[in-house]
């Protein structure tokens, strides 16, 4: 028999290599080809509408050239599509600039609604990484029908805001308002709450995520100049570059609300300290947030550390007479007020 283990191994590794090249996540040839077959006119139309909607909302103008620069399709396709869109009266030309018609605006609003609802869905009901929400929603916004969208909304309890803090348009096109100022423009000493974190561009969003800055946190600005913005939140100081800070929106606290000065994250609790819970950060969502509430992590509950696991994560906390183990990243989303040391 002409069999040689070396050849057998070589053939085997050859096969492994080929299947790796074909199927490796994202850039595998199989996926690349599959994706190229997918883009079609509907997607281009909807992306154009959405882009114009966002530009108009920001009070800016956009011409054809700028538009095609901001989208990932080639110019020819876009020109063709725009021609068609003016014919079916989704948009008009105002000199150089493109403007949405009423029906174009309605259509755009619907797309935005699906996008934000889907992000909300991903955040609440699935375990996908934050970095993936946007791309997945970009995909999904072209797929869901009216009925499916409304079902989804009901199922999510008709949310007003998406997980980044953007308002979700209702079925009838009603949009809750989002008031606030960019973190980068706040004066030193201002006190407020993070209401929105922009998820584009990716590079900046990644930095914000890496800092573990949470939506809903109360903050106080400590320093603000050309080099950096420093603020205090949940017992920690955060330092950001101004362009990063410009992607975070803050509403100033109302008169009757006051900044909790001793607020900290549960993850910062030490072995011999006792604390009481203030609340759960908005960053904790969906079923896992509910589960925490069910387990008694509610305002006013006393909490202390019961046990540390061999790796130091998770930690078991003693709350309402029971020891409950949580991982660090969950604990960092529970806000506490530290009290007296209980001196064990």
């Amino acid at each position: 028999m002409n069999y040689n283990p070396t050849y057998a191994l070589l053939i085997f590794f050859g096969l492994v290599l080929i299947s790796y090249l074909l199927f490796r996540p994202k850039s595998g040839w199989f996926w690349v080809i599959k994706n190229n077959l997918k883009s079609n006119e509907k997607i281009v139309i909807e992306d154009v509408l959405k882009q114009l909607y966002h530009t108009e909302n920001a009070g800016k103008d956009m011409n054809l050239h700028q538009l095609s620069n901001s989208l990932k399709f080639d110019e020819r396709t876009i020109v063709d599509v725009i021609k068609k869109m003016t014919i079916i009266e989704l948009l008009t030309f105002d000199g150089e600039n493109l403007k949405l018609t009423d029906s174009g605006r309605d259509y755009a609003l619907r797309i935005v609604r699906v996008h934000r609802l889907w992000e909300k869905y991903l955040a609440e009901k699935t375990g996908f990484d934050k970095m993936e929400w946007h791309d997945r929603a970009e995909d999904m916004e072209h797929k869901l029908s009216h009925e499916e969208t409304d079902l989804l909304a009901t199922h999510l309890g008709n949310p007003q805001y998406d997980p980044h803090g953007d308002p979700i348009p209702t079925k009838l096109g009603k949009v809750a308002d989002l008031e606030g100022e960019f973190l980068s423009s706040l004066k030193v000493g201002s006190v407020g709450r993070i209401v929105h974190i922009e998820d584009e561009p990716d590079v900046i969003y990644k930095q914000i995520l890496a800092e573990k800055i949470h939506i809903g946190s109360q903050i106080r600005v400590i320093e603000n100049n050309k080099e950096r913005v420093v603020f205090y939140a949940e017992g920690q100081e955060f330092v950001l570059a101004p362009i990063v800070a410009a992607n975070i929106t803050i509403t100033l606290l109302e008169k009757e609300e006051s900044l909790e000065e001793n607020m900290a994250r549960l993850s910062s609790l030490k072995d011999n300290e006792e604390a009481s819970i203030i609340g759960i950060s908005k960053e904790s969502r969906g079923d896992s947030r509910r589960r925490l509430l069910d387990l008694g992590f509610v305002r006013g509950a006393k909490i202390s550390i019961d046990l540390e696991s061999p790796f130091g994560n998770p930690i078991a906390y003693l709350i309402k007479g029971t020891s409950i183990a949580l991982r660090h990243d969950q604990a960092s989303k529970i806000l506490i007020k530290k009290g007296i040391e209980n001196g064990k």
Binding site: P25, R291, S323, Q330
Partner: peptide, 16 residues
């Protein structure tokens, strides 16, 4: 987790 069942690690809570 890295391929077909992608996703962030969800929460873990366990009563001891």
């Amino acid at each position: 987790t890295k391929t077909v069942l992608k996703g962030e690690v969800s929460t873990f809570n366990l009563e001891l």
